[in-house]
Design a protein around this nucleic acid. Sequence first.
DNA 1: CTGCATGCAAACCGTTTGCATCCCC
DNA 2: GGGGATGCAAACGGTTTGCATGCAG
Lengths: 139, 139
Amino acid sequence: MNAPAPMIRLTTQRHIILEELAKVKTHPTASELYDMVRKRLPRIGLGTVYRNLELMADSGMILKIEVGGTQKRFDATTEAHYHIRCSICGKVDDINIPVINELVAQAADTTSYLIIGHHIEFTGICSACQQHQNKTLAQ
Amino acid sequence: MNAPAPMIRLTTQRHIILEELAKVKTHPTASELYDMVRKRLPRIGLGTVYRNLELMADSGMILKIEVGGTQKRFDATTEAHYHIRCSICGKVDDINIPVINELVAQAADTTSYLIIGHHIEFTGICSACQQHQNKTLAQ
DNA sequence: CTGCATGCAAACCGTTTGCATCCCC
DNA sequence: GGGGATGCAAACGGTTTGCATGCAG
């Protein structure tokens, strides 16, 4: 649709960013990823991480998740799927319900926008934060 | 659930912020609202706008929309509904398709999160930006 | 040798916060 | 007179960017 998947060179930094991202099932923010990558590449700069995440998202290698909350998050899985975000700690996990493609057609009838895609974001409280709350309430 | 809807005093500033928000069908950001309100209340501070939007959202008077993109947006309509965001200019509009409450039950079966709610966000290109694109391509 | 990629640091932008003043009860 | 609300400005956190250097083709 837009400029389609420009091929990008796989530098050491990009390779390691990709590996670290693929390692985790959660959806780290850029600075979380920065911390992970820095353990293997201590001299890497934050700017490099941001630049490359953006680049790799543009070229379709990874998924940029722009959900509620302030920070962008990234996902090594590029297939369409939905997410849930903990409204307390901000953690983001996958939700495994089937993707509803008909939504786009449905929505298209009601708007003058040219629809590109859709995303469902659930909000909730993760198990860790639930336990925290129970403890706090019990006091 | 959390602290439920604390009643807040309706000061002049809050009243005008509310009026200006209700006036528009789009979903302005805090600083867009700030600009609108400043025409009627030139000495109002940005901080006041932020503080009050946050407060009014907490007390259920307005809706805070945390969709993709960097800025929070606000909505005078508090009933559940879905949105579409222009991926070029960032504008947000309503999408009038029925709310699918079953999604929450469906998702609940697949996760350890305590689910609070859900939101569907479509992405697309608004008509203004579509025209822009056509012009640009035609050159 | 040439250009893209990097590290570093400064700039940026949206948002939050501390504080003195103000206004309403 | 007292407590919350305001205006103002400084601080903050996340992200982007400019620039000099480095490295791969």
